[in-house]
Simulated scan of single mutants.
Amino acid sequence: MLNGTSDAFLSVTTRAVGVGRRDRYRQVVTDLVRARTPVVMGVLNVTPDSFSDGGRYADLAAAVAHGVRLRDDGAHLVDVGGESTRPGADRVDADTEAARVLPVIRELAAAGVPTSIDTTRARVAEAALAAGADLVNDVSGGLADPAMARVVAAAGCPWVLMHWRGHAQRMAELASYVDVVGDVRAELGQRIDEALRAGVAADRIVVDPGLGFAKTAAHNWALTARLPELLDLGFPLLFGASRKSYLGRLLAGPDGRDRPTAGRAAATVATSVLAVAAGAWGVRVHDVRDTVDALAVWQASGRPRLAPSTEQRGAP
């Protein structure tokens, strides 16, 4: 048994999902992973306790309606998550997570909405792919569940490998780096190597620096400023700053209180445009329409790229 999933079950799923769906995933790679325009991933948390919108879309009808709305607002993918990964969050069991996400993914797939499954569990990812998900977004980069690489390789789907050091309850104690950008780059490189050794095709891999996951605000800003160093890994990069606490801290009021999540949309849009201008493949956001509008302006302006600072160029 691997995390409650038997070899026999994996074998059946490989035949049912992997072989039968490879052509569709190849099209997903062409349309999304190799997209020439920035990819916008819309966030759909079907949880009661996510940091920004927990509980708003726990009802199936509300979740599906919001997923369709995100697509209509311009999202290329709707990222469906059934377990909160905010700092300090308690874990839920696999059955609870699956019960939250699978009906939503089935309904959205039936409505023609491309989806990704936001999970660290191979069993949930496997079931979500069978329900119609197009991509696995794994915030643990395959570390939380050793079976994930085998599931992804068998399915042939794209896989987002995020930088991660431990589950939500341990994040703060793990936020220690010699050089956060160099360390994140090296650790992501290890996850890429492991995925390739497991048989995941190189053209199916996307990386994510994991802003806020075992990272302080200073770490997040350093990763943002030095994004090209992560792009040197040679894989598409997903950037996810949406509504995160370090933006709230930046925008704190005169009383010192962090800006609430609902007031962080403009800052999120700014980080998204800066990331894309630095070379990011895509952004993961709650406020899809504002982000899509801002990226349309960026593209109409000739898709300008950020030049390295004098510090990054090594000038005196």
Score class of each variant (00 low, 15 high):
Gly156Leu: 05
Ala267Gln: 03
Val33Lys: 11
Pro48Val: 07
Tyr177Ala: 01
Asp31Arg: 15
Met1Gly: 09
Leu223His: 13
Ala214Glu: 07
Leu230Tyr: 09
Asp73Ser: 14
Ala277Gly: 12
Phe51Leu: 13
Ala201Tyr: 01
Gly82Leu: 05
His66Glu: 15
Asn3Cys: 07
Val12Met: 04
Gly234Ile: 00
Asp53Pro: 01
Gly74Ala: 04
Asp193Tyr: 05
Ala266Asp: 15
Trp159His: 13
Ser176Lys: 13
Ala63Cys: 06
Asp138His: 12
Met162Lys: 12
Ala198Leu: 12
Gly18Ser: 10
Ala65Ser: 10
Arg165Phe: 08
Val151Asn: 10
Val28Met: 08
Leu129Gly: 04
Ala175Trp: 14
Arg123Tyr: 00
Arg121Val: 00
Asp183Pro: 00
Arg305Thr: 15
Val200Cys: 08
Ala270Ile: 03
Ala8Gln: 13
Met162Asp: 06
Ser309Met: 12
Gly156Ser: 04
Val101His: 05
Arg289Pro: 00
Ser11Tyr: 09
Ala89Met: 01
Thr268Gln: 08
Gly82Cys: 08
Asn220Glu: 05
Asp138Asn: 13
His76Ser: 13
Pro146Phe: 05
Phe239Arg: 01
Pro146Asn: 04
His76Glu: 14
Arg313Val: 12
Val92Phe: 11
Val200Arg: 08
Leu237Ile: 04
Ala75Gln: 07
Thr13Leu: 14
Asn137His: 11
Val39Gln: 01
Gln27Asp: 14
Arg21Val: 03
Val40Thr: 14
Gln190His: 14
Glu126Cys: 15
Leu274Tyr: 03
Val206Glu: 00
Phe51Asn: 05
Arg106Met: 01
Ala265Val: 15
Ser272Phe: 11
Pro146Ser: 10
Asp255Phe: 12
Val139His: 04
Ser116Met: 07
Arg204Glu: 09
Leu102Gln: 09
Ala225Ser: 12
Ala300Tyr: 03
Asp145His: 05
Glu83Ala: 05
Leu60Val: 13
Asp134His: 12
